[in-house]
Amino acid sequence: MTVTSQTLTKFIVGAAATAAVLFVVWYFSSIVAYILVSAVLAVIGCRFVGMLVRLRIGGRAVPRWLAALVTLLLFWAVFAAICSLFVPLVINKLYQLSTLDFRAVVASVEEPIVRAQNYLDTIFDIPGSEFSMPEAISSTLREVVNVDSVNTLFSSALGITFSSLIAFFSISFITFFFMKDDGLFYSMVTAVFPARYAQSVTRALDSVTVLLSRYFMGIFTESVLLLTAVSLVMIAFGMAAGDAFFIGLIMGVMNVVPYAGPLIGGSLSVCLGVVTPIPGFTAGHTMLVIACSLLVLKGLDDFVIQPSLYSNRVRAHPLEIFIVILIAGTLGGIVGMLLAIPSYTVLRVFAKEFFSQYRLVRQLTEKI
């Protein structure tokens, strides 16, 4: 391929335009996130809107605005039902944490801690040390989790709640108009591109819609199954249903973050085993039961099922997905890992439409 001054100019202009668009997206990332979430909800809801529009009530068709409003109310009802199940569990755990007797918690696991201290004293040859590891851990826990820290946590929760309310009403408003005015989101995106690219952009959006819908439905199904499996296993070991369901909730929610999410969720779940041990079990035995159960349930899922699920849903090789997640995690941490696969899917689809002349792009997008 011969590189001419005209080709080089087009490349530079295209790169500059892409950089400008990426900067705008980053600067207004929260608004862009609202629009993208609304677009996903609109894709899910438009099928129901179409069903309602085709209904005949008293010989008259249901207006599209009414169908969109009913669908939005249905989304609200589902969200409210989920909150009514999960929010009381979270509040109850926060209350338990604020009233926890840390000395009693440390005493329940004191034997293995003392054994570990004696082993360290032997290894490092520390004569007659007055240092007490249980007392140090208890003091640290009291400093970390006290009235002030709990108040700070509640203040942060209030701030998050306020931001969530803004996001909730913004997403609801945008979703309503996306469902009411069919094709509005497509028009918004295609308006950014020159008219001659409108057909290519539309094809790309169609592919992105299908792939991301498959991906999100797969993740949702996997998280629900994991929540159910973890809860049932914990109940089978004798844990109270509320505590078991809370651990299942943590694992199900954190499961949306590839690889790192289950690790963080598992660590939190093991810590909860210390706070609320299984009746008849010591805190140490409860921690061991939780850790082993989660390793069994998540080991196969993380390293076998998830790569295959992600790759099948977005039509990419498992190794390709794994590398993308690693890169995104390095650049953006947990948020980067959360957005890695959807972002990579969008980039692949648009690269196929506009840069298919490059062999690397053809190899990466041949399955789309």
Rank of each mutant, 00 (worst) to 15 (best):
residue 289 V to E: 04
residue 280 G to D: 05
residue 177 F to A: 01
residue 223 S to M: 10
residue 200 S to G: 10
residue 85 L to C: 12
residue 58 G to R: 13
residue 348 R to D: 08
residue 228 T to K: 11
residue 164 S to I: 00
residue 331 L to S: 09
residue 91 I to M: 10
residue 321 I to P: 01
residue 151 N to M: 15
residue 33 A to V: 08
residue 233 V to D: 04
residue 88 P to H: 07
residue 341 I to E: 04
residue 354 F to K: 06
residue 351 A to W: 11
residue 45 G to D: 01
residue 4 T to C: 08
residue 201 V to S: 01
residue 336 G to V: 03
residue 33 A to C: 02
residue 244 A to V: 06
residue 220 F to R: 07
residue 158 L to F: 13
residue 275 V to M: 10
residue 93 K to P: 00
residue 126 I to W: 11
residue 212 L to R: 01
residue 214 R to A: 07
residue 271 C to D: 10
residue 320 E to F: 14
residue 15 A to I: 13
residue 117 Q to A: 06
residue 61 A to S: 11
residue 155 S to M: 15
residue 346 V to C: 05
residue 200 S to K: 15
residue 124 F to M: 05
residue 307 P to C: 06
residue 54 R to N: 13
residue 204 A to S: 11
residue 326 L to F: 08
residue 98 S to K: 05
residue 121 D to M: 07
residue 250 I to Q: 01
residue 256 V to H: 06
residue 245 F to R: 11
residue 158 L to W: 15
residue 205 L to H: 02
residue 19 A to F: 10
residue 359 R to Q: 14
residue 260 A to K: 09
residue 114 V to M: 08
residue 153 L to K: 03
residue 358 Y to P: 02
residue 101 D to Q: 09
residue 234 M to K: 08
residue 175 T to Y: 03
residue 227 L to Q: 13
residue 163 S to I: 00
residue 309 L to P: 05
residue 188 M to K: 08
residue 196 R to N: 15
residue 164 S to Y: 07
residue 327 I to A: 09
residue 297 L to R: 01
residue 354 F to Q: 06
residue 191 A to V: 02
residue 319 L to R: 10
residue 297 L to G: 00
residue 303 F to P: 00
residue 171 I to V: 15
residue 300 L to D: 10
residue 34 Y to L: 02
residue 268 L to R: 03
residue 81 A to Y: 14
residue 250 I to C: 02
residue 359 R to F: 12
residue 208 V to F: 00
residue 102 F to L: 02
residue 60 R to P: 06
residue 352 K to D: 12
residue 20 A to G: 10
residue 198 A to C: 04
residue 367 K to A: 12
residue 341 I to L: 06
residue 280 G to L: 06
residue 254 M to K: 04
residue 39 A to R: 11
residue 322 F to Y: 13
residue 104 A to M: 12
residue 260 A to G: 07
residue 260 A to H: 02
residue 154 F to C: 12
residue 296 V to W: 02
residue 283 A to Q: 11
residue 145 V to G: 01
residue 220 F to G: 14
